[in-house]
Design a protein around this nucleic acid. Structure first.
Lengths: 206, 206
DNA sequence: TTAATTTGCGTACACCTGTACGCTGAAAAA
DNA sequence: TTTTTCAGCGTACAGGTGTACGCAAATTAA
């Protein structure tokens, strides 16, 4: 009972997932991949694909989950850096932009499927984004001492802007990404400033 | 020289464009359309398609241009309503959300191709969005009496948030869209407030 | 040992795709 | 009038797709 069988199966499963990720690019989205092509890249027969996923959609959802997980793990590290005395806004943005740079295909998947043609995909991506928003809102509520309502609104706006900046970065040469990061940092500061000003406004403290 | 020929050609061209727009949906993106299917819907032979567009990409770019134009025209009306005494933020957001509701397929096209697989498409959509940002920045610079730099940053953030809200609205039943509009209105106010607070900040007035 | 599971492969089929080519009929130009 | 132009059609082909089905080999269970 060494489980050599389950082990080999897992290996093939990984090969499929990796093959799919590696075929994503600026010019190729998930819906543009074919079962046959992914199988070819993974060195298995097309029909063997079904031993691991019931169809391409199931593979795609797995990839979204994995991508979201990877992103969340990275941001967890960012929070450590923040705890060690880094600026919250700058550290978060820079960590995020690093992720976009080094895992472009993962980010592309999340970005595109967020407005893709499958409701399940859209829901999965939004779930990942909501994780972000909730965590950031917790922080803002605690640190900024503002109402939950305001904190959530602020967090949503911030995450939206950061995500959008990541999307823009994809089309830019590496050299041109720094000013973009600085821009979004300033935009987040703008929001933080606005939230501070609004903190005691009656509309958001009832 | 009645031009009955050119007239008929234009009619067919329109039929193709309309057919393509009508086939877009939540479940179907532009890249999922086929030349044959569009031609079928437009009641022409597949090979006749080439009399009007050299390939599907050329059709798509035409659609992006048309969609962007329609959106800009609508927002021009919004500015009239503002001039007649409406709130700038509320009027703009509500006008935009009406567009999303009544021309979902047009908005979906812009939304998806912004992060799509064709660099030309992405550039075309971004061109449309830049129109928006520039116009809004003009207004903010004038009305808010702030620096160009701050105005552009503020406008970019606002347009990003509104666009994002439009995307979310697509997956919501019509009834649930009003709270979403209110939310984004509050987010824009947050930014406006932040910009006002930062207006005389040294960093943005040099 | 024998029997049952299960991963992976090869073949086969029906279906859809883009597009090359040549023809027709009607509008426009000569 | 005769000639030219050109939108639109039908046929045809090569190439890609998803997936049903049955077989082989090897791990696991009895």
């Amino acid at each position: 009972m060494s489980g050599v069988r389950a082990q080999q199966k897992e290996k093939t499963r990984r090969a499929i997932i990796d093959a799919a990720f590696s075929q994503l690019s600026a010019e190729r989205s998930f819906s543009g991949l074919s079962l046959r092509e992914v199988s070819r890249e993974a060195n298995i027969a097309p029909t063997s694909f079904y031993r691991h996923f019931k169809d391409m959609d199931e593979l795609g959802l797995t990839m979204v989950d994995e991508g979201g997980l990877a992103l969340r793990q990275l941001m967890r590290k960012a929070r450590q850096r923040i705890a060690d005395g880094g600026s919250i806004i700058r550290t978060s943005v820079e960590t995020f932009m690093e992720f976009v740079q080094h895992h472009s295909n993962v980010f592309r998947l999340l970005l595109r499927e967020r407005s893709g043609t499958s409701a399940a995909f859209r829901a999965a991506v939004n779930r990942e984004i909501q994780h972000f928003i909730a965590e950031l809102a917790d922080y803002l509520e605690d640190y900024g001492k503002c109402s939950r309502e305001l904190a959530v609104m602020e967090a949503e706006a911030m995450v939206t802007l950061v995500f959008n900046a990541g999307a823009e970065a994809l089309d830019l040469p590496a050299a041109a990404r720094k000013p973009l990061a600085e821009r979004v940092i300033n935009q987040l500061r703008l929001i933080a400033k606005g939230a501070a000003a609004l903190k005691h406004d009656r509309r958001f403290s009832e």
